[in-house]
Design a protein around this nucleic acid. Structure first.
Lengths: 226, 226
DNA sequence: GCACATATTTGCACTATGTGCAACATAGCT
DNA sequence: AGCTATGTTGCACATAGTGCAAATATGTGC
């Protein structure tokens, strides 16, 4: 795409990225995710085969499976790097930040990264939002996503256990993680998401406040309102 | 159970159950679930094929797929009837019961039904507990379970929306449902479950209290403890 | 530029999941 | 017994996913 004339020898671009090989892999990976999303949005999950996706990016089916362990993983945008980044960020926060607060911080930071297209996956925020639209409209994809989130949950729970300093906190850590991820999922797939990432942030804020305050409180608001 | 002697002709059992045909189906279904669970517990999810399960119950593979839409569904114990029963129970509660309280009630009632082997699925509580053991030890099965719960979540959320009286409550209903199901999942798969259903109930009680009170409160307890 | 080491892509064979369809068998009813 | 509805099975077929080895592209030293 970009010319980037040769400097001297066989070097050509962007020293920030490890090399041409890595860059190509990244490009292919992103192209597969984007193509898969487009096709599924258009025809529905069941009517898109792996072959369709591979053809759209002009790689072999076998290569597709070098990039993703399953069709679902590709559509859902599964990314080990991304999960690891989340976990590392969590581990990097000061130890006196509470689990709920820590998860909250990390998720919002991730939302911002995606919004500004500086997410580690290199995924465009437009693609990311489109995925949520598909999630909302296609139950099969939504369920696959739930599965994916369960994997993420595992990783984040482990990190929280480390932060809290011992296995005796695992049950508590699990509860907080599952709850926070549930909230993010609901917010992400709620119809309010029509408003883009900004709307999601707002919804998420409210949901977190509600969580911190306890559900019954909100419930009392409800009663008061009628 | 109750004899209900023959009325006149070729009637033989339990008039409560629709007929021999239904009873046979029920038996086959339960046998498939139990066999699948045994095999998976023994060899691991990946090393059990649908053919293995079908053979163990002596039905054809094709018949297996008449009972369950997938291998995962069988192992996870997916059961449309059961989900419907949960939903109906939820809808049957007095309208002034709060969503959190309603879900809590329904889940505990279900736990009791399973404990006393009067669950609608007819599943033995011993099998049910064994499933959680498998869930705990095999990630693949656990992730499949998460998917299954996402389906249940949908149904319960719909019921809550009906209870609350309008679509404007969907976001709130989703949040409560996802959270409660998350809690039940964590509690069910926590190591504490070694103590059987009684231990699960106790853990769940604590988790619900924590939820109602808000997470940060618990977090303060934690700080106070060190 | 050339040659070598290493990583990636691909084709091929194979196993397993899941579905549609039509033949067959069984339960339920009169 | 005989008729009908429902459940079971075999068979053909599409798709998902994996292991392996050959072909290809990249990175590197000279």
């Amino acid at each position: 795409m970009s010319p980037t004339l040769e400097l001297d020898h066989h070097e050509e671009g962007d020293a920030a990225l490890p090399g041409r090989r890595e860059r190509k892999k990244r490009t292919t990976r992103l192209a597969l995710k984007a193509a898969a999303l487009d096709l599924v949005a258009e025809r529905g999950f069941a009517h898109v085969t792996v072959e369709d996706i591979a053809d759209a990016v002009d790689v072999s089916v076998r290569t597709f499976f070098n990039y993703f362990p399953s069709k679902e993983a590709c559509i859902v945008g599964e990314d080990a790097e991304r999960i690891d980044a989340l976990r590392d960020e969590l581990l990097g926060l000061p130890p006196d930040v509470s689990p709920l607060e820590a998860l909250r911080t990390v998720f919002f930071s991730r939302l911002r990264a995606i919004e500004e297209d500086i997410d580690i996956s290199g995924e465009d925020h437009e693609v990311w939002l489109r995925r949520f639209a598909v999630l909302r409209s296609q139950p099969e994809v939504f369920f696959a996503f739930a599965k994916h989130l369960a994997m993420m949950e595992r990783s984040l729970t482990d990190a929280l256990v480390v932060r809290l300093g011992g296995e005796e906190w695992r049950l508590y850590a699990s509860l907080v993680t599952t709850t926070v991820i549930g909230v993010m999922r609901v917010v992400g797939t709620s119809s309010a998401t029509g408003g883009g990432i900004a709307a999601m942030k707002k919804s998420a804020e409210e949901a977190f406040d509600m969580l911190a305050a306890g559900f019954e409180l909100r419930q009392q608001n409800r009663k008061a309102r009628r």
